[in-house]
Design a protein around this nucleic acid. Structure first.
Length: 465
RNA sequence: GUGGUAGUAGUUCAGUCGGUUAGAACGUCGGAUUGUGGUUCCGAAGGUCGGGGGUUCGAAUCCCCUCUUCCACCCCA
């Protein structure tokens, strides 16, 4: 009888309470973005397959949700695929990959950055640079879900594109500080610079393989120095070169200690020096800011995304043990892949779901007042409801949200409805009240009940809220 | 993609060595109380025991396959 219902793996329903909290979260973030002059954009849930493919590396391509072509998609498959598959079943992975492009030409967006790059290139004639935009939309990844990781989740991206100034990085740091002040959360902003990492790899002879270098380095926090060394060794880096940089990347000492050590080791690397210079300048700019949060240079900060070319930014919660809750950086040539080279951008992305979890664990939602119905009119029948409706309209005009119970069922049931929906005030207008032109007003928390003349109702109720 | 864990009512879970009609709590609905919520009492509904196959006189229980969940890895927000 009851059909078994479910939603796809890694997706979620949000009930009224979580939604109120999520809206608060998005509204807060959005209002800070707007305060700094960023403009909203939205892009479609789906992009053409070629826009997305190849932008996230081999692994990323596999995690893109592809949309099957409408209609008779099978007719697009060439016969040799079936023959090939029968002949080489062990090759099915490769065959599927090639076949995908014939039966699918669009896919769900994987992040907001690549669609943004596409947007900028496509609308370059209409955009005035530097272009400051924010975008709060869901993205989809065909990853295997696990704790705090979903197949559908929201990103809140804020970027400025078409400006090389480090003031942009500084402004983003300001925005991060402001957002988390509004949430009442304690955070630390961690900074690094991709050019410094490149410089370190260069002077230790690992320059040719920056990706492997940084992927391992990024795990330092998690797996420890010994395992990082081991991973480097397995990728072919020499012990000598490893030992050379170990003392520098260790997260000991103050920010200026770290900068001093870098100045020394990077003196023979042009790229490294450039990065160091950027980081020093940025630190100098933000030293003039009145930030609540601390800013810490973390040379192990690498972040997976390979398109970062300058600053790398990451935010960690100090209240709750959790991965990063916000992160980003500068990318010098993101639009280059769409044929518009030389446009630099910098941006960060707030992880809404993780911030939600942090706020939940720190009781950060308790300040959120109940924004549902404030007043419930009980329904005693058609004649009484007819009296209630204009009164309800008067209250609404005064900005008080109220509703009339739709059915004239038992009062007990209507009271239960008020109780369970946490409606603080119930107004009863039955035959007696109607004849006396007085409403019985009941305060649910105390149980207290008073009579108020219809003519005084809006005024009297207005004083409560 | 790899490894582990689990799957029984809407939810959280019992269910003995394979043995009669699969239970509880909470929730839902109804009643006690025809105009008064939270507490209490009574009652009811709700199950293809994730699905398929196998072993057996007999399977929620044992075996195989599959799906799903959660956790960890890879990667990432």
């Amino acid at each position: 009888m009851n059909q078994k219902t479910s939603i796809p793996k890694g997706t979620r329903d949000f009930g009224p309470v979580p939604m109120m909290r999520r809206n608060y979260l998005f509204d807060t973030i959005r209002s800070v973005f707007q305060l700094y002059g960023y403009m909203p954009i939205e892009t479609p849930a789906m992009e053409t397959l070629e826009t997305l493919m190849g932008k996230y590396g081999e692994e990323g391509d596999k995690l893109i949700f592809k949309i099957l072509n409408s209609g008779d998609f099978a007719s697009g498959i060439k016969p040799e695929f079936f023959e090939n598959l029968l002949r080489n079943p062990e090759n099915s992975g490769q065959i599927s990959k090639t076949m995908a492009s014939q039966i699918s030409e669009k896919a769900l967006r994987y992040d907001l950055t690549v669609p943004f790059a596409r947007f900028v290139v496509q609308h370059r004639e209409e955009i005035t640079f530097p272009f400051k935009r924010y975008q709060i939309q869901p993205v989809w990844r065909a990853d295997r879900p696990q704790k705090n990781r979903y197949r559908e989740f929201y990103q809140c991206d804020v970027d400025v594109i078409g400006s090389n100034s480090l003031l942009n990085e500084a402004e983003l740091i300001k925005i991060i500080d402001e957002v988390f002040i509004r949430f009442g959360l304690n955070i630390v902003i961690k900074l690094n610079n991709r050019k410094i990492l490149a410089g370190l790899a260069e002077v230790s002879g690992m320059g040719s393989n920056l990706t492997d270098f940084t992927v391992a380095l990024d795990k330092l926090d998690k797996i420890g120095m010994e395992l990082v060394k081991k991973e480097w060794s397995s990728k072919g880096f020499s012990n000598d070169s490893i030992d050379l940089i170990i003392p520098v990347i260790g997260n000991t000492g103050s920010n200026s200690d770290k900068l001093d050590r870098l100045r020394d080791i990077l003196k023979n690397s042009g790229t490294g020096q450039k990065g160091l210079e950027e980081l020093e300048t940025l630190m100098k700019i933000i030293s003039g800011f009145d930030l609540k949060c601390s800013v810490e240079i973390d040379l192990t900060l690498a972040r997976g995304l390979n398109y970062y070319t300058g600053a790398i930014i990451e935010v960690k919660s100090l209240d709750v043990q959790m991965g990063s809750i916000c992160g980003g950086g500068r990318y010098d040539d993101l639009t280059g892949i769409f044929g518009m080279p030389g446009v630099s951008g910098v941006g960060v992305s707030f992880g809404a779901d993780r911030i939600y979890d942090v706020l939940e664990q720190t009781n950060g939602f308790t300040a959120l007042t109940h924004t549902g119905t404030q007043i419930l009119f009980l329904n005693f029948g058609p004649e009484e409801s007819a009296v209630c409706m204009p009164l309800a309209d008067q209250l609404r005009s005064a900005g008080i949200s109220c509703e009339l119970y739709p059915d004239s069922t038992k009062i007990k049931k209507q009271m239960q409805y008020a109780d369970q929906n946490k409606i603080p005030v119930v107004i009863m207008i039955g035959e007696t009240e109607r004849n006396a032109s007085q409403a019985s007003v009941k305060y649910m928390s105390s149980g207290e009940q008073v009579n108020i003349a219809f003519s005084d109702l809006t005024n009297a109720i207005g004083k409560i809220f």
